[in-house]
Amino acid sequence: MKRDSWGKILLGLTTGAAFGFLLHKGRAAEHEAISGQLLFEDASVIKIMATASAVGALGTYALNALDLVDLKIKPLNTGGVVLGGTLFGAGMALLGYCPGTSMAAIGQGHADAAAGAAGMLGGAMAYVKAYPHIKPIIEKGSTGKQTLPEITDTSPWLWVAGLAGAVALGAGLQARNRNNADNSERQGLTDLAPRSDIV
């Protein structure tokens, strides 16, 4: 059995611990987070993902411009992404957690997430068994490792700026709405107690 150095595994453990800590603080490790997102009742998960993507894009493309990192692009296997994405979405709705948040949910003590993880190992075994037979379906319509700037022949910074701008706009709109809601609450004298819970 092959194994990386313990230093690398420890680096992964530390990075993962920070990731899990953040997922829990964002309340993404709750069943309500993913299911609420899929029912359009709670947009926390999409806000976390979009903000992480925008900030990560700024960092990664800046480091890439300095030749400090290489991009790790997953191939555009149209069959695998479309069929796999459909199965993934259906399974995620049934489980109520995604792979990362199910690990965080286990840390928080969700018994159903532990059952989900056992199922995930089973699903991976089924995939290993099925792979030689479904490989042609997965690779159907494959166009290789492509990025949006490559396909459209544009600067990646245009996309990074668009992504960051969209997230900043969303965050700004939410801050304004919350201020308005606070003000109207105060005008209506519905709640005179200090709002220590809103930071």
Binding site: M49, G80, G84, F88, G91, G100, G116, L121, G123, I134
Partner: peptide
Amino acid sequence: AAASGGALMMFGARMAKGCTSGHGI
């Protein structure tokens, strides 16, 4: 249901080579 959902989700993730973290973010 959670175990079945997990199995389905993982099968799909490996077909697509990523999940809500690997692809999503």
